[in-house]
């Protein structure tokens, strides 16, 4: 496989995953803001910006911290690199560059997501926002399905690798920001629970039902943290994303005959996650732990580029 093709597939995976994540984040925030009995208002939207690390960019663009403006910024702002519009555009650019490697179905899902933004998104009331978010999710789900129906070859492995690396980052960020936001000064973990906020986290990673299946004792922050960090059953957990990373790299090693730095880093992390107990992490400082995960993931990203000669 051409190195450029591999790089495009990997980035395609990353951008699709990012678009999907932002869509879920907006959806969950909107629910929290509009549908819950106590409207969460500014705080909810500020935290959505914080998760995507875009608060400075939003402020610089002169936006007001309102539902409409933040939603538009995260969804459809052409000038904002992290908006779904841009992510989908970048995903489509990468998909176009590797058009021959994708199945028609996979391409059509990406193109379909892009066409959603074809007509300029003018005003975003909650209804249209939710509809748009739903459509984006439907297309990314369609893409994921199409990828699963494609040949299990290097093409799909690079896409999955990109998705897994992106997912690790997104989940770690989500947990880090929300956890901080939710923990009022002086409170210890396990204290007052803002039910709605914790539900928002679970919604963002599609884990409301999964949580109920796995934990019988009601909504407890430590359980949510455990679920998102170390439960392999949840596809969007750091543990599951890491496992997926290792699987994709192993598959690539098998088909290309080469192993390297990226394989070693991913396996080391997988082994560490298996050893780590969530209680210890919380006790030692969740924030530090998550920051380490994010930094390590960034190193892994660089190692992948080196190993497969992306440059």
């Amino acid at each position: 496989m051409l190195s450029r093709t591999a790089a495009s597939l990997y980035w395609l995976g990353r951008y699709v995953e990012r678009a999907d994540f932002v869509a879920r984040l907006v959806e969950a925030t909107l629910r929290l803001d509009v549908l819950s009995t106590r409207p969460a208002g500014e705080d909810a939207w500020r935290s959505a910006l914080a998760v995507t690390e875009t608060e400075p960019a939003f402020t610089a663009a002169g936006g007001e911290l309102t539902r409409e403006e933040v939603a538009r910024f995260l969804l459809a702002d052409a000038g904002h690199r992290g908006s779904i519009l841009r992510c989908v555009g970048m995903a489509r650019d990468n998909a176009r560059a590797v058009r021959t490697a994708l199945s028609r179905e996979a391409w059509q899902a990406i193109n379909g997501a892009w066409l959603l933004f074809d007509q300029r998104v003018a005003r975003l009331d909650p209804g249209t926002t939710l509809a748009l978010v739903d459509s984006v999710k439907a297309e990314t789900r369609g893409f994921e399905g199409a990828v699963h129906r494609m040949l299990r070859n290097q093409t799909t492995l690079f896409i999955r690798l990109g998705q897994a690396v992106e997912r690790t980052d997104n989940t770690a960020r989500l947990l880090d920001v929300k956890y901080h936001l939710l923990l009022p000064a002086g409170e210890s973990v396990g204290g007052t629970v803002d039910r709605d906020q914790w539900t928002t986290i679970l919604q963002t990673v599609s884990a409301v039902t999964a949580y109920r299946w796995l934990y019988s004792d009601g909504l407890a922050p430590a359980n949510v943290i455990d679920l998102l960090l170390s439960r392999g059953e949840l596809p969007r957990s750091v543990a599951a994303a890491t496992e997926e990373t290792v699987t994709a790299l192993t598959g690539l090693a098998r088909s290309s005959g080469t192993q390297g730095e990226a394989d070693r880093m991913a396996r080391t992390r997988q082994a560490r996650i298996a050893r780590t107990r969530t209680g210890d992490v919380i006790a030692a400082g969740l924030h530090q732990h998550l920051q380490a995960v994010i930094a390590e993931n960034a190193h892994l990203h660089v190692a992948i580029g080196r190993q497969f000669k992306f440059a």
Partner: peptide, 8 residues
Amino acid sequence: VYMRTIAG
């Protein structure tokens, strides 16, 4: 002439 691939 060569093409650059992930395996060289």
